[in-house]
Amino acid sequence: MSSLDTSLDRLVPPTRVRAWFEFGGRHAWTLLGVGLLVGAVVPFVVGDGFYLSVAGEMLMFAVLALSWDIVGGQTGYPSFGQMAFFGIGGYVTAIMFRDFGVFWPGLVLAGVLSLVAAAVIGAVVLRLRGGYFAIATLGILLTLTEITRNISITNGVDGISFLSTLPATTFYYVFLGLLGVEAGLLYYLSQTRFGYTLNAIRDDEAKVNAMGVNTTYYKVTAWMLAALFTGMAGGAWSLFNFFIDPLTAYNTAWNVELIAMALLGGTGTIVGPILGGMGLHAIIRLFVETYFTGWQLGLLGLIIIVTIIVVPSGVVGWLEERASAMDYYEHGGGAAGEESGGETGGEPE
């Protein structure tokens, strides 16, 4: 173990890791801009074939993982039903396109209806915690699947297929735009009391309540924000995919996949879920589907289990921990305030 530690120290010394984080913190907006610029150039480099699809999907999964993380990572309410809003958004644009032949108004409507649905669902499920919350959200996802299978406007189990005339690059830029706006918004919010309050709810919700904050408003707002981006991503995806049916729209496996992405990258961060989403999807599409056809889900289960056991805080989270490991002592933490001897005088009740 110790030899592993020393080699890790040589490979990623805490001071260097901290320098990366400090650089990222100082130049966050510039980095976001550069990222978007690079993203904008990609279609000109890869053309509009298979690789553009993969790139678009990578961006989409980054949006989904980041959205999941607003509630699951930042606020501490891990949902198994995030895909509910993906499905709602997907069906809204699909129906709008089928019945009225339009895409952009449908995309806006997908966002609006996802917000409305999230307000109603969130007010109910966000009163639950832990396993109950997780299973309730899973129940919502499966309920929506069942309803969609049985009503006529969604064309039941057969789903809706269409010949979209929009080029793949349009969807690519929609996903890029969604990711850019979402990452920027979340970065901005992370420096406001709204962002702090979400993190505080994750760390100790009862304390936040005792400090005079009605946590329900914050939780539901975060949940709606996540639903907005998820719904719009779903809205773009159904036309991008030329087809939507209940099992793919409300995909439980994808729901687990995007949790794995956020977890692998590092929950509670912004970079983590983005890198996790893009990275894991690239691996799945370019590697797993080629060499392990039909085993995607089995490998996904394996990745989740290994991540949880080996790097529970994710790659970015792990780096962050390394970067701040020495903070306390470097700031004279051992000397300021209490000595360790003061911690044993307690009289437990």
Binding site: P78, F80, G130, G131, A134, A253, V256, I259, A260, L263, G294, W295, Q296, L297, G298, L300, G301, L302, I303, I304, I305, I308, I309, P312
Partner: peptide, 16 residues
């Protein structure tokens, strides 16, 4: 949550 997720991962893996 992690134990939930592990069993969910297990569920998916066994299905596959």
């Amino acid at each position: 949550f992690l134990s939930l997720l592990v069993t969910f991962g297990l569920s998916i893996g066994l299905q596959q």
